[in-house]
Design a protein around this nucleic acid. Structure first.
Length: 574
DNA sequence: GCCGTTTTCGGCCCGACTGTTTTCAGTCG
């Protein structure tokens, strides 16, 4: 029984209780406990007697968790399952439908799943329920239609592309005084549902009218005095965009409010309450005098609450408030710290450019060094290099090092970790390289034990410097391998092996929470690389840096910020 | 159900929008 499973059970319990009309604070309490379980760094099975010490878990939830651990289930939940249809919570996924409506649908019409809901809505049986009507019925049918296509999340690089083109359009509107991205995209989450803009203007209605008149607008979802909500289609990328229209005085507070995260905001409001203040998107109100304070910028807003400014990437309620209170926020790594990319491909394997073209493009970005790391021989689909070809490439790298000044090209390879954990090249070949990256490109579906052993064997290899994309996930497409991350981190620490944060926006692997954990608990170092397959791919480093910041990494945690001699020292340490 | 340098009881974050109502509940972020 792992933490994830325990948290899931608590979430299910909360969902069911909410639909049964249970006290909302009680439901919130279970949700909060579930969140606490999820973010716990230790396995709850190992600290069963100390559960109550976790904030958000009291006597009641603690005994519930113990029951889950001991029996593998929860009697209370099983009992509710007998009373309520098991598929009912799935209806919560439909936008516009909340627990209250769902319970009404179940009680009055006996609806137990999405199909039955669809059927009765089509027969116009839903509109006559109390609190329902024709519009709501239509909305339900539209929601069911969309639901079958799955939840539409967009990769951060695509969302950023859409956002930047809209930002340009916004800035051409005369009445717009200030524009800033907010929401999850400002926090650089790896996938994005909606884009949020905060717009400062004294003519909100007029600005709203102009926005909905753009040719990119596919659908207007809502249009009020302070908010315009649309769907856009820009070069085939379809996504929702919300514009919050506020006065210049409200701008800083609104920016903070709509940047979130929700959990971060809750903490901020709780803090403000201690001072007798109320925080909203319009400012901070003194509860007694009813006076509204507004702020020049976010810095001033945080300062009012006696906190230093917290970078948006940290605003997830993962400890940033506590660190800010102690004035111990990390100095996050930034793009300007970055000195060289250590993972890229060329025409030798499945890349699109020559060694020289990659080197010159990197030099253009101001890098001091790069490593050429083409695929190894077993990876036929990517035209992995034979041993012979590796020697050829070394000769070419030597030549380009002579020709292109101001940047050093390191000889490397991305060597496949074979199913048994051995490497795809012999040791004497690897010995001749400056840098060896090992990674998995086949046999993704081993069980956890076999996969963990496989990767750890590669980590323990004395010539392996880096494990690339360690969990193998492809965002929105493929789950990570089954692997025990704690054992992996421990092996990396014991051997001085560096773990990669792959900056490719389809991967972003290791993910933010693993980075934070691996740094805090194991003191690991990391490398951020683009895995570029063409010169254009090098610029994707920004997504890696952003993810590193979400993982609380500082400059010294990332070896790509080291000088070449420092880097070589780290590589030799192994 | 959880929690406490004002509390062991009485709170628990805040406001907009929608669609339903005829003053507001539900949902969302």
């Amino acid at each position: 029984m792992n933490n994830k499973q325990i948290a899931n059970t608590l979430h299910q319990l909360a969902d069911f209780l909410e639909m049964k009309g249970e006290n909302t604070f009680k439901v919130q309490a279970y949700r909060r406990a579930a969140r606490a379980v999820e973010s716990s760094r230790v396995s709850l099975t190992e600290i069963q007697d100390q559960l109550e010490q976790i904030s958000g878990i009291g006597k009641g939830t603690a005994s519930i968790i113990r029951e889950i651990i001991e029996t593998g289930q929860l009697a209370m939940l099983e009992e509710i399952r007998l009373q309520l249809p098991p598929e009912l919570p799935k209806l919560l996924h439909l936008p516009g439908l909340g627990p209250k409506s769902i319970y009404t649908l179940y009680q009055q019409l006996g609806i137990t799943n999405i199909n039955e809901l669809k059927e009765l809505a089509e027969q116009q049986k839903v509109r006559s329920l109390p609190g329902f009507g024709p519009k709501k019925e239509e909305k339900i049918l539209a929601a069911i239609e969309n639901y079958s296509e799955g939840p539409a999340r967009i990769y951060v690089h695509q969302a950023m592309f859409v956002a930047e083109s809209l930002r340009v359009k916004l800035s051409t509107i005369d009445q717009v005084e200030q524009v800033e991205l907010a929401g999850s995209i400002r926090r650089w989450k790896e996938t994005i549902k909606d884009i949020d803009f905060v717009v400062a203007t004294v003519h909100p209605i007029e600005v709203g009218k102009q926005i909905v008149s753009w040719s990119e607008v596919k659908q207007v979802i809502g249009q009020g005095e302070t908010k315009v909500s649309i769907t856009v289609d820009i070069e085939g990328i379809v996504m929702g965009v919300d514009f919050r229209l506020v006065t210049p005085e409200q701008f800083a507070s609104s920016l903070h409010h709509f940047t979130g995260s929700k959990e971060h905001n809750v903490r901020i409001r709780q803090r403000a309450k201690q001072y007798g203040w109320k925080v909203s998107e319009y400012g901070i109100e003194d509860t007694k005098t009813k006076q509204m304070m507004t702020f020049q910028d976010e810095q001033a807003l945080f300062a009012k609450l006696e906190l230093p400014w917290i970078p948006p990437e940290l605003r997830e309620d993962r400890g940033e408030i506590e660190k800010a209170e102690q004035n111990q926020l990390p100095t996050l790594v930034q793009l300007s710290d970055y000195r060289g990319d250590l993972h890229m491909h060329t025409l030798y394997s499945d890349g699109a450019n020559t060694v020289r073209e990659m080197a010159e493009a990197a030099k253009e970005l101001g890098y001091e060094y790069i490593a050429i790391t083409d695929h190894s021989r077993s990876l036929k689909v990517a035209r992995g290099l034979s041993i012979e070809e590796v020697y050829e490439q070394w000769e070419e790298i030597d030549k380009v090092n002579q020709m292109v000044e101001g940047i050093t090209i390191l000889k490397g390879a991305e060597v496949d970790i074979l199913t048994d954990g051995t490497l795809d090249y012999p040791d004497d070949l690897l010995q001749g390289m400056d840098i060896v990256i090992a990674s998995i490109h086949s046999q993704f579906r081993l069980d956890e034990k076999a996969m963990t052993r496989r990767i750890i064997r590669a980590i323990e290899h004395p010539l392996v410097n880096i494990i690339a994309h360690p969990t193998g996930r492809l965002l929105l497409r493929r789950d990570p391998y089954e692997v025990n991350m704690d054992e992996l981190f421990q092996a990396a620490r014991d051997t001085g092996t560096i773990l990669e944060l792959n900056a490719n926006p389809y991967r972003l692997d290791l993910k933010d929470t693993y980075l934070q954990q691996a740094k805090e608990e194991y003191g690991l170092k990391f490398t951020i690389n683009t895995d570029a397959h063409a010169i254009g791919g090098l610029s994707q480093i920004q997504f890696g840096i952003a993810t590193a910041r979400r993982g609380w990494l500082e400059k010294e945690d990332v070896i790509n910020t080291y000088s070449l001699s420092e880097l070589k020292q780290v590589l030799r340490k192994k």
